[in-house]
Design a binder for these strands. Sequence first.
DNA 1: AAAACAGCTTGATAAAAATCAAGAAATTGC
DNA 2: GCAATTTCTTGATTTTTATCAAGCTGTTTT
Lengths: 190, 190
Amino acid sequence: MNELENYISTFFGISGSDVKNVASYFKPQSLQKGEYLLKPGKIGRFLSFQRSGLIRFYTNSQDAEVTQWISDSGNFVADLSGLIFDLSSRTSIQALTDCELFTISKEDYSTIGQIIPKWHELEKLFIARAFLFMEERIFSLLSMNAEERYHWLLNHNPSLFQYVPLQYLASMMGMTPETLSRIRRKNLNS
Amino acid sequence: MNELENYISTFFGISGSDVKNVASYFKPQSLQKGEYLLKPGKIGRFLSFQRSGLIRFYTNSQDAEVTQWISDSGNFVADLSGLIFDLSSRTSIQALTDCELFTISKEDYSTIGQIIPKWHELEKLFIARAFLFMEERIFSLLSMNAEERYHWLLNHNPSLFQYVPLQYLASMMGMTPETLSRIRRKNLNS
DNA sequence: AAAACAGCTTGATAAAAATCAAGAAATTGC
DNA sequence: GCAATTTCTTGATTTTTATCAAGCTGTTTT
């Protein structure tokens, strides 16, 4: 089992010929730092597996950019509104660093559903996990102050703090860079 | 097509004998004001369609209760972590008013998946819609101040403001009842 | 009808976080 | 290696929101 097959097997809980079959649709893709996977107004007709690098999801809101999430290697990257519903995106998806991906087009993605009977169920589970994660995030935003959210993210995604510019992490946690900087100073020991 | 069949048809985009088939698994259920559909630590092995009444999802956090969402009639109600993954809930689901539901057990729910081939795909679409809604909520929490969030909810779910105690709406929007009260006074005209 | 209660509002104050402005540190480009 | 640029930090101040405390309003209970 190669790298991609291994990831697919882990994420979707399938094995044997199914893995090989699914994996065969994914094509290697490289992104340079700053390059866009998706821009607002376009339809994100793809699903990518992130092999290396950092990818930022953000939205332009009035004057400021709101970073919604930063994905690191080992994750799948997609705009669900485009992939599932063919809706144009409000979100930008941009490479923060050079990235290596395995990407499947929406067309091939749909084909899998016709070939592997339980694909839709696996997708369902996959999306349901994402939903539960979003639910947790909402809870953190509703119930925690800035410092608690900082600790929450530090626990859930410690690796982000090693590589991602702090301004983006601040935005993602719903605070200003200055506030994050002060929280970090206060927590130098931990 | 009766009331329930009509709802199912709308939500899942199916028709004919499939609707009748799916609908036949749902059983009427009544809840009295204050009664619980689910308590923390229990596994939510059900999916309910809400025919009337108001249902509150909330979590006990340290000292305070955090209202995560309030569902009104015409929606489906479930704890995905229980329904899909058999995980025990951290959330309480409680009737804010007397409610009439149509409820299906997890067992019957699983049966549908075996009988109607495209059921998993419909579920997928259903959950994906929920995911996108959560994404919007996160965006509102990240990018808006209290007053903007108030207007956002007022636009997205005006009916909630007619029937739901304001303290719960305040919590759901991530602000205190006092703050919501002041925002409302400021916006009496609109 | 009075008492008790729940929900909402109001005002005063405190705490949290944003903003503004400047400078330090790190990174990038040449 | 140095200049230019970006990112991060720090301090002073303002704004936003929470907290605390009291009172108001309407409803339910007895």
